[in-house]
Design a binder for these strands. Structure first.
Length: 630
RNA sequence: GCCAAUGUAGCUCAGCCUGGCAGAGCAUCUGAUUUGUAAUCAGAUGGUCGAGGGUUCAAAUCCCUUCAUUGGCUCCA
């Protein structure tokens, strides 16, 4: 385990406390009396096992830095054991506390008594930096980290507040101009407005669950698995088929782009040096597994495995940009339970993750443009168009000043206004990040494709390439997910379908993703053999076809073919048995047309060309099939 | 994670306020029907009322705890 000084820091109008009784034997010897302080920063502090002078020094340094930011000179150190379940011994904690007091330097410092139960009254100020928690890590790297992934719910307010207070929001139009968000005319860009105001948005009154939740069950795609953890879904045969096709499609596209597909472990040792350093950078929430004395965590992206792999490669500048790719099944993020909904936000999800190792920023920028096209194309091919998503782009001021045209070029490529976030300083490992967000009918924004320019992890993981003079350098790394999580793609497709339904159009999935593409309905039992032969012929053409052999009326079976979103229904009766042409009911028009077998097949092939195919993932006969959902 | 709502048959839901035999439609099964493009008819099966505890002669119903889902907040590397 790591050790920490834990600090909850509050900028207060006032605090009043009274020591009531000694909590431990070694409590400080004082006369209990009520103290009141005004205009003060209160630091509630807990020392953990393993803390030493070094961490105490870092802790007080952190506190002083933030005090300067809020412009407060008065500090109260308040021993507060409840911040930790891994406390240092009282004697050590007390001496470290006194050390912090002595190191406070020029500010007016006081300290609440140690080892006493105290009652207190506190009035905290309302500004963004008034409340923050800090976790000072004691480890050899000698860096100060904010937040720690081993601990649940302990996120770094300091980091967040800083990034918030120093980021500037704009809208960039395709002509490259920046506009104030407040002055921009969103008349033709309602979804972008929702995205822009997402953080400050007023309460959205919506007591409805997102429509895709019903559809994912009704269409027997996916469902919750009560025996697992929340956010870990089960996928029924239909869902597995859809997901599998999407996965294959994205894989193919990334390979065409030049990505080398690899496979890496889903769990890693928390104590591996690169690991500890990387994920301590973020207030992550991940699943932990303790086994045989090892502390493992489940990956939340494919970065780890690919970086460790690249670390072992001998890379020349001639090999650059080097693209490694993996589709994770799964990535795990232990999101807050209140955040999980249907297929929109999961704790276990499948995500394409393609890293490009580049020599320098110019190469990275050039490569990023290619990946931008890749991402747009992937989404378009699966049925998500530009009009369906809004782009956000975030970068440091420095990057903007040096690469203005790069950013303008991306916005121009998209051809519509984009939300811009600019940071004064770099807080994350990347200098630029863009993403496409789907804004659903309830006003929720979810990121799909994304790419980042990472300037930190090349060094962190010790990844090196050799230049023309055989001098080693750390690469710039791009992190691209061309489609975003596959489950989220299904969520978008279902939300779009639900919207179609709501607005009176027929809901459907793209034909290449439809679990059943053609349904054959025999008019009578005696035509079943003919149907079987026909189904064989259609199957041979790589088209998913089934036969509704139930003893039900034609009307009923047509109706169900419709409600199952099956695009083509073929009724087989006397007429069809005695002539070569097919009577095809097209769900889109609702009309029945008589066409030849070859034309029918050619039509379907045209609609599904250049898309992966997989065989029917259900019994061919409806009567042989368990009913999964109504 | 916090606040709130919801949880009854495989599915959609009624019953709960005001405690007193566990309900409907669809699905499933059986039988009849052999159908020409969006729901054929009849009968039957089906429930530890999310789980655990409490109050009561008696709990789906009232109270407490807990789990899940959904909404809002927060979060979203």
């Amino acid at each position: 385990m790591f050790e920490f000084v834990r600090i909850l820091q509050l900028h207060c109008d006032s605090i009043e406390y009274t020591p009531t009784k000694k909590e431990i034997k070694s409590a400080e010897d004082i006369t209990p009396e009520t103290k009141k302080l005004d205009e003060v920063v209160v630091a509630f502090i807990a020392m953990e096992q393993g803390d030493d002078s070094e961490t105490a020094k870092k802790a007080i340094g952190e506190i002083k830095t933030s005090m300067e930011k809020v412009g407060c000179k008065k500090l109260l150190l308040y021993p507060y054991a409840h911040l930790s379940s891994n406390l240092a011994s009282p004697s050590l904690a007390f001496s470290l506390l006194k050390e912090m007091e002595s190191l406070a330097g020029d500010c007016e410092v006081s300290r609440a008594p140690f080892g006493w139960t105290k009652s207190y009254n506190v009035k905290v100020k309302g500004h963004p930096l008034a409340e923050s928690s800090k976790t000072i890590i004691n480890e050899s790297a000698g860096e100060t980290h904010e937040g720690h992934p081993h601990e649940e719910g302990r996120t770094s307010e300091a980091l967040k507040s800083e990034s918030k207070i120093q980021s500037f929001w704009h809208i960039m139009t395709p002509d490259g101009e920046m506009h104030e968000v407040s002055k921009f005319n969103f008349a033709k860009h309602e979804k972008l407005e929702i995205l822009s105001k997402y953080e400050s948005a007023k309460k959205r009154v919506s007591d409805e669950p997102p429509p895709h939740v019903k559809l994912m069950k009704k269409m027997a795609i996916a469902d919750y698995e009560p025996a697992s953890d929340s956010g870990n879904m089960r996928f029924y045969p239909n869902g597995r088929l859809i997901k599998s096709l999407l996965e294959r499609f994205v894989n193919d596209q990334v390979k065409e782009y030049g990505g080398l597909e690899v496979e890496t472990p889903i769990m890693y040792d928390s104590h591996h040096p690169s690991m500890a350093s990387y994920f301590n950078r973020f207030p992550a929430r991940q699943y932990n597994i303790n086994t045989e004395g090892k502390q493992l965590f489940l990956r939340f992206a494919a970065c780890f495995g690919q970086f460790l792999m690249a670390n072992d490669f001998q890379i020349s500048y001639r090999n650059m940009p080097l693209k490694l790719y993996e589709l994770t099944r799964y990535s795990f993020r232990r999101e807050q339970s209140g955040e999980l909904v249907g297929l929109r936000r999961l704790r276990a999800f499948t995500m394409p993750d393609c890293h490009a190792f580049c020599t320098d920023i110019p190469q990275a920028v050039e490569e990023m443009t290619k990946r931008f096209d890749l991402s747009q194309n992937v989404l378009k091919q699966v049925g998500i168009n530009e009009s369906d998503y809004e782009m956000a782009i975030r970068f440091t001021e420095e990057f903007y000043n040096e690469n203005k045209s790069v950013i303008q070029n991306l916005v121009k490529k998209l051809g519509k206004p984009v939300l811009v976030e600019m940071w004064k300083e770099r807080f994350f490992y990347f200098v630029l990040k863009w993403e496409f967000n789907y804004v659903d009918s309830l006003g929720k924004a979810s990121a799909l494709s994304t790419d980042q320019i990472d300037v930190e992890n090349g060094m962190r993981y010790g990844i090196k390439y050799f230049d023309e003079n055989n001098i080693p350098h750390h690469p710039i790394i791009l992190h691209n997910s061309p489609s975003g999580a596959i489950e989220r793609v299904i969520y978008v497709l279902l939300e779009k379908a639900a919207l179609d339904q709501k607005e009176g159009r027929k809901a459907s999935l793209p034909l290449w993703l439809a679990p059943i593409q053609v349904r054959i309905i025999p008019l009578k039992e005696e035509f079943l053999q003919h149907c079987e032969t026909l189904a064989d012929r259609i199957t041979q053409k790589d088209i998913r076809v089934d036969i509704d052999d139930r003893n039900e009326t034609i009307s009923k079976r047509i109706r169900e073919s419709e409600t199952e979103w099956i695009q083509y229904s073929l009724v087989i009766g006397e007429k069809e048995v005695n002539q070569p042409n097919l009577s095809v009911r097209d769900r889109i028009s609702g009309n029945v047309k008589e066409i030849s077998f070859d034309d029918f097949v050619a039509n379907i092939k045209e609609q599904t060309k250049e898309k992966p195919f997989t065989k029917l993932n259900l019994s061919r006969y409806v009567t042989k099939r368990p009913q999964i959902m109504v």
